[in-house]
Nucleic acid binder design. Structure first.
Length: 225
DNA sequence: ATCAGAAGTGGTTCGGACAC
DNA sequence: GTGTCCGAACCACTTCTGAT
C-alpha cells in the first residue's frame, strides 16, 4: 500500500542540471524543423528509436505531406505505408490523425498561441494515443510552454540519485520538478522553456550513456553522489 | 568472434476487478 | 453508477545470453 506523500521542492535538481550541462553542453533539441514535425515526431517516437522516426519523417517529407491540412485529408492507409519504419504503424497512424485533427479543429498552431497551457494540455490528453509524456513533449518543444517533460529516463535517474522513490504519479513528479527549479528561473517563461528543454535532453543523454538499465557508473557526471 | 534466439525496453489503450 | 488500479496487449528495436 503506497503511503500518501508529497515531495518537497529541493535545490539539488538545479545542481544536477548544472553538472549535466557542464559535462555535456547544449543538446540542441528538438531535432525538427517545425512545430508540426515536433508533433509528428512526438507520436512516432513512442517506443521507437529516433533513427527510425527520422526515416518515417523523411517518407512524409518526400511525399510532400508535412502539412497539417494535407495530412488530415490523407487516408490512414497511406499514412501507415509512409510511417512504417517507425513501427506500430497501424496504431501510430490512428494516434497521429487523432492529434492532427484536434490541431486542425483548434485552427492550427497560430491560433493556439492565446490558449492557456492548462487547456492545451487537457485537449492534447483527450486525443487518442496522447498520454502525459507525449502531451508535455508537444507543449514544450512545439508550443514553447514551460512544462517539464517527465520520462522513464528522468524517473530512473532521480530514483538512483535518491531524490524520489520512483513510483510517484506522473503529475506529482512533474509539478515537483517544476517547483524545485522555479526559484532558479525567476518566473522568466523563456528561460524556463530553455532550461526545461535542455534538462530533458541532458537526462536522455545521461540515461543513454551512464544511467542505463544496467548502470555504467564510472565517468558519470553525477557519480559523486 | 560470430551468430541466433531470448529478454528487455518504451508509452499508451483497453478491459476486468475492486472499492466506494 | 463512478472512479481507481492493475495487467495484458501492441510492435520494432536494442541488448543480453548462450551455443558454436
Amino acid at each position: 500500500m503506497p503511503s500518501v506523500r508529497k515531495l518537497k521542492p529541493v535545490p539539488e535538481l538545479w545542481t544536477i542540471f548544472q553538472k549535466l550541462f557542464r559535462a555535456y553542453g547544449p543538446q540542441h533539441w528538438w531535432p525538427a524543423e517545425s512545430p508540426l514535425e515536433v508533433v509528428i515526431g512526438a507520436v512516432l517516437t513512442q517506443n521507437t528509436a529516433w533513427q527510425n522516426v527520422e526515416r518515417a519523417m523523411a517518407n512524409l517529407k518526400h511525399a510532400r505531406l508535412l502539412n497539417l491540412d494535407l495530412l488530415c485529408r490523407t487516408p490512414a492507409g497511406r499514412i501507415v505505408e509512409l510511417i512504417r519504419p517507425a513501427g506500430y504503424y497501424n496504431i501510430k497512424a490512428r494516434r497521429l490523425l487523432s492529434v492532427l485533427n484536434w490541431l486542425k479543429e483548434q485552427g492550427g498552431f497560430a491560433k493556439l498561441r492565446a490558449t492557456p497551457t492548462s487547456r492545451l494540455r487537457a485537449g492534447l490528453l483527450d486525443c487518442y494515443g496522447v498520454g502525459p509524456e507525449t502531451a508535455d513533449s508537444i507543449l514544450l518543444y512545439a508550443l514553447n510552454r514551460p512544462v517539464f517533460v517527465l520520462d522513464a529516463y528522468t524517473r530512473r535517474i532521480l530514483t538512483r540519485y535518491g531524490l524520489i522513490q520512483g513510483d510517484e504519479p506522473y503529475e506529482e513528479l512533474r509539478l515537483w520538478i517544476e517547483e524545485s527549479l522555479a526559484p532558479f528561473l525567476k518566473k522568466d517563461p523563456r528561460a524556463t522553456v530553455r532550461v526545461f528543454n535542455e534538462f530533458h535532453a541532458l537526462f536522455v543523454r545521461l540515461a543513454k550513456t551512464h544511467c542505463r538499465s544496467l548502470p555504467r557508473c564510472p565517468g558519470c557526471p553525477l557519480n559523486s553522489r
